[in-house]
């Protein structure tokens, strides 16, 4: 019996006064597992992942490595979960790539040489060590994504959560990212609309709709069942 890394029960959340964004979500992630989160725009995927490290807190229960997500556990939980945001530009806020990647380790109380070692090691893992001294805003989208991932890896997380990591990446960039992530040992949650990417990386998938998980199972089956939602070509009857 594997121990659950993440256990979410009946999670509900609404943004200040608005409609419910999460309407009773239950979810479980086991050790070493990689799960894809599918669902149309506005179905609550981002809202859901923001609950995993307590950036948002709703009703219901969220546990990470056995710790309930509440104020006193937040710093421990944020050590365990590495969240890579959809928009890399918001995530890279220090003046150089190296300083940005060292931001997490220094927050964790590491000394300067240790933090820099960790940051360089993380940059090597993603193949960005040559860009250590560059300014993040001068990098291409793919390089920014890799730098953002390095910033997360440097904190030594047990779980990686990636919100639409392939946005802005060209197809070769998407393949390279899938290979990079597949080689990382951590358990993963990947929010994506990208079927080949999800199939390459995640054996299991869940499908969000209007704030609830309406299906889960092997990724290929979930994709087949919701084929219509992934088709970007207009239906014949519309033409």
């Amino acid at each position: 019996m594997k121990r659950p890394l993440i256990e979410v029960r009946d999670l509900r959340f609404r943004y200040g006064g608005g409609e419910a964004a999460l309407n009773g979500v239950s979810f479980r992630l086991d050790e070493g597992e990689s799960v894809a989160l599918f669902g149309p725009n506005g179905s609550g995927k981002t809202t859901f992942v923001l609950h995993l490290n307590g950036l948002l807190q709703g009703e219901g229960s969220v546990e990470v490595c056995g710790l309930p997500v509440e104020r006193r556990n937040l710093s421990a939980i944020r050590r365990k979960i590495g969240l890579v945001f959809q928009d890399s530009e918001s995530q890279l806020f220090m003046p150089t790539v190296l300083e940005d990647v060292a931001f997490g380790p220094i927050n964790r109380g590491l000394s300067r040489p240790e933090a820099l070692d960790r940051a360089m090691a993380a940059l090597r893992t993603v193949g960005m060590d040559a860009a250590a001294g560059r300014a993040p805003y001068h990098l291409s989208a793919g390089e920014q994504k890799k730098a953002a991932i390095a910033g997360i890896l440097a904190t030594g997380p047990e779980i990686l959560v990636l919100d639409e990591p392939t946005t802005f990446l060209d197809p070769p960039g998407q393949r390279a990212l899938a290979e990079l992530l597949a080689a990382l040992p951590q358990a993963k949650i990947v929010v994506t609309h990208n079927i080949p990417f999800a199939l390459a990386l995640c054996p299991r998938a869940v499908f969000f709709q209007e704030g609830v998980i309406v299906a889960e199972g092997p990724t290929a089956e979930v994709v087949a069942r919701f084929r219509w939602n992934f088709d970007s070509a207009p239906a014949k009857s519309l033409r």
Binding site: R79, Q91, I106, N107, A115
Partner: peptide, 20 residues
Amino acid sequence: DVHRAMLARGFTGRLPTLYD
């Protein structure tokens, strides 16, 4: 979003620095 990204990486209100 920037603030959330900082919190997610353990930011506690003190800008870490590489300057000794």
